[in-house]
Design a protein around this nucleic acid. Sequence first.
RNA 1: GCCGGCGUGGCGGAACUGGCAGACGCGCAGGACUUAAAAUCCUGUUGUAGCGAUACAGUACCGGUUCGAUUCCGGUCGCCGGCACCA
Length: 800
Amino acid sequence: METYNPKVVEKKWQGIWETEEAFKVGTDFSKPKFYALVEFPYPSGQGLHVGHPRPYTALDIISRKRRLQGYNVLFPMGWDAFGLPTENYAMKNHIHPKIVTKNNVGRFKQQLQDLGYSFDWDREVNTTDPNYYKWTQWIFLKLFKKGLAYKSEMPINWCTSCKVGLANEEVVNGKCERCGGEVVHKVKSQWMLKITEYADRLIDDLDLVDYFDRIKVSQKNWIGRSHGAEVDFVIGGTKDSLTVYTTRPDTLFGATYMVVSPEHPMIEKYKDQITNYDELMAYREEAAKKSDFERTELAKDKTGVEIKGLKAINPVNDKEIPIWISDYVLMSYGTGAIMAVPAHDTRDWEFAKKFDLPIIEVVAGGNVEEEAFTDVATGKLVNSGFLDGLEVAEAKEKITEFLTEKGIGHKKTNFKLRDWVFSRQRYWGEPIPIVKCDKCGYVPIDESELPLQLPDVESYEPTDNGESPLAKMTDWVNTTCPCCGGPAKRETDTMPQWAGSSWYFLRYIDPHNEEALADPEKLKYWLPVDWYNGGMEHTTLHLLYSRFWHKFLYDEGVVPTKEPYSKRTSHGMILGENGEKMSKSRGNVINPDDIVGEFGADTLRTYEMFIGAFELSASWSQEGVRGCRRFLDRVWKLSDLVTDEEDYSKDLEVTMHQTIKKVSEDFEAMKFNTAIAAMMSLVNDFNKKGSVTKGEYKTLLQLLNPVAPHMTEELWEGIGCEGRIYQSTWPEYDEKKTIEDTVEIAVQINGKTKATITIDRNIAKEDAIVKAKEALGSKLDKTIVKEIYVPGRIVNIVQK
RNA sequence: GCCGGCGUGGCGGAACUGGCAGACGCGCAGGACUUAAAAUCCUGUUGUAGCGAUACAGUACCGGUUCGAUUCCGGUCGCCGGCACCA
């Protein structure tokens, strides 16, 4: 055969696959299904990054294998195309974001097609397509009608550079995740989604799914569920009480003061009784000025002011204790107030030391003068009246019962998770389908009016007062109230980028349906997604948001499953040759087009799978790419050594069965690197032997096909096989034939290998020991204490 | 600080439930082919000593369990990722 020319081969087969509709999703619902999903890309102006093909190739391999195994496979692709960079580019170059998106999508699509992925392109979706975002808006209306979308005046994270409100998740170290600009607090009326309503289920239902452990752990930490109690402290001289949340009700006897957040409403309420109100206000103002970043930066140095004129009463011992304000207590968590137990909480301890407040030990086991004793596993209660002598866990139970009986407290679960800030003061996003009427308030538009299309505007610049560019479109903004028919104004904020990506996997199932988000019968067949792979960076945001929406749609009867994805895996990043993250400024960017041009798509695919453990990050190596091309060249050249024999040759039969087993299992476990290594070994075996039977070669081509689909199709045809390799059946192995009859095992003395022997696999222990002793000969020179034989593995003689 | 992960040749990385450490690839060295180079093919390649068979050491470090530890346990150091005053 002539030399391997990927340029010709790859174009040829991409054309054939398209003509033959090779990867069109099957409609026979009696067949088993497999839904493989990769995160759809944001079509940026830079084109495909060399990191994209890693997860795409991985699931392309799984998908191609599943097709050969007889499944209906849904492996779709689309575009998460709303977003800031497009809008920024549009602003700078005065091109409509629609056009920018179209161009970028065109480029991305061509690049993906050049890589030979088996996507069914008839199911392509685009979040910016009105026929798509119609349903994003439809879901929003459902949320609104259920009271899960609400408007709230609240301090939001405001990026001073992008002039846009950000979700908590978009703020990294007090900076804007996108532009690195300073983030400050700004009070604005925002649309919020009540994800907190689903907090428990988002944790508990993780038991129903198969996710990488670290993904489950991150989700749990992010939701941050904690169990404790709320306790009421009476404010001295009033009938009112101050409620705190604590996870350590057992330490109640050690509460020597209280702290409330600087924004706590009780300060206003008791303004008249407070003698140092001005001082408190000054402190509050200082705290408000600090950005979140500064607040955490200065975490170690506690500040605060005592509220003079008010005291609280510790409900268990009736002691009068002071109340302080400090910015280490957050208004947004718990009740905005805490009971301080300096002996057993590190922050309270630091605060007490600084302001010289009493520290009372109530759990024995540490030295509370030196540091807070926070261990809950070992200590016993002291100085705690009826709790004395109990373990922490018992004391918690007992005190909570006591508080409940007395009506001054109760069990309480809290979450770190906050509601989702859903508004963006931006143009390039889904319009929120709500109008505001002075009489009727916020009114949803009628479903029949969907999609509510984005109007064309003159300028995409956000306004300085923080309003969306849409606000300037008075023709669009002024409308009538769907409820009373009076004059009303449209909502001008748009949805965040996370909206469209929260349900896109549903639309792939029935992308052209005009009557519904998707046909229920189809949803029933295809859901849940069997295997979803995506980046670790999306575990706390996208993954959580889409699980939330899915659960909501489940409650609404729209989707048939509680969870959207039954399995979730994550890939590692691809770094530059110097081991650093690829970036223009570091000058270490690899362009996938260049690799495809020089070596071919099959080589790029093979290399990215061979580069290292799939879930770990890996550095690029141009030499490594060359090595993979060499491997493919060797497979190619092997076609000259193919004999007519359809069976496996006797001497390689075991190796063949072993390799099929290894590759089949390793693909499933995403151990692509070792699967490829096994195929390289097999090729080395063929070359050593100088020939390969047609049967052996066909199997090799089928095993390699998911990784290098173009080349294997060409060779399949080249050696005169029937049909296409994509229509063939995944090779089977016989477990019995993966085991050699004879095996070479190690012979050890005291655990150190001294010789090897070749024995029959089923040899009796006695015979194995005899053979081993023969092999050791004079090395056995002491008294034998023990003889160990692990069948098929090792003989170990212990001598003294 | 807390949570998660990792530490193996010159490099990327293998090693099933504790059983011959270093598969496979890269690089390097030597050889074949060539006028020559590239490409390709063959041989070697953890370190130390030895011509050699071989011996000893060796999976971040210290210790433990075991006939036997890269794997399990305790401690130390280092790197990466996430969260970060969440009461």
